[in-house]
C-alpha cells in the first residue's frame, strides 16, 4: 500500500511529519491537521506577492507529509515572520511556525544557511549580540559611534566562555 506524488515521485514522510507536528503542539499548541485550505493566510501573506510563498500550501504539504520538497526549496526562507497568517487563521493553524520548524530542520540536516544568518550566529557566539557596535553616519554624514554619545556601556555576556559552552551544546539539542 502506498501513496506517491507522481510529479516528484515523493512519498509521505510520516516520521518527520510527526516530529514537526509534535514540536508545533509543544511550542504553540497548534494542530496543522485542522487546516481546511481557505487560503486566508496566502491572501494576506506579506511574502507572497514578491517571493511566491504560499503558506496554505506549506500546511497542505505538511499534512500530506511531503517534507523534503519544502526542505529543498528556498521558498521557506522567504517568510518575513509578520505573523499575519497565524493571527488570522480561522482554525488556529500557524504557517509561520511551521516555516520556523522547517528552517530549523533544514539547518540541522546540514543544508546551507542563507544570507547573513551565519554571521549573526557567529557574532552571538563571540560577544552575545547579533552585531558589534556600529559606526553610523548622521544626517550631515558625520561618523558617530556609541562611545561619543554619552551612553552607558553595552550590556553583553560577562563570562563569554561559559556562554559559548552552553550555546555550542544547544546546537546539537532538539526541541
Amino acid at each position: 500500500m502506498s501513496i506517491i506524488d507522481l510529479t516528484s515521485m515523493g512519498e509521505p514522510q510520516k516520521d518527520i511529519k510527526n516530529q514537526i507536528n509534535n514540536r508545533l503542539k509543544k511550542l504553540q499548541d497548534e494542530v496543522s491537521e485542522f487546516c481546511y485550505q481557505c487560503a486566508k493566510c496566502t491572501s494576506g501573506c506579506e511574502a507572497h506577492k514578491l517571493l511566491e510563498l504560499e503558506p496554505h500550501k506549506i500546511v497542505a504539504l505538511l499534512k500530506r507529509g511531503l517534507i523534503d520538497e519544502m526542505l529543498n526549496s528556498d521558498v521557506i526562507w522567504t517568510c518575513m515572520s509578520c505573523f499575519k497568517c497565524r493571527e488570522r487563521c480561522p482554525q488556529k493553524v500557524a504557517p509561520v511556525e511551521i516555516l520556523f520548524a522547517l528552517k530549523n530542520i533544514a539547518v540541522a540536516s546540514g543544508k546551507p544557511i542563507p544570507g547573513k544568518y551565519s554571521a549573526m550566529l557567529q557574532s552571538i557566539l563571540s560577544n552575545g549580540l547579533i552585531q558589534d557596535v556600529q559606526t553610523i553616519s548622521d544626517r550631515n554624514n558625520q561618523a558617530i559611534k556609541r562611545d561619543k554619545l554619552n551612553l552607558p556601556d553595552l550590556s553583553k555576556p560577562v563570562d563569554t566562555n561559559k556562554f559559548q559552552l552552553v550555546l555550542s551544546k544547544l546546537a546539537i539539542e532538539k526541541i
Partner: peptide, 14 residues
C-alpha cells in the same frame, strides 16, 4: 454557477 459569477475559492486576509 451558470450565471457569470466569479467564484473565488479562498478567503481574503482583509
Amino acid at each position: 454557477r451558470g450565471e457569470n459569477t466569479n467564484f473565488f475559492r479562498g478567503k481574503p486576509s482583509d
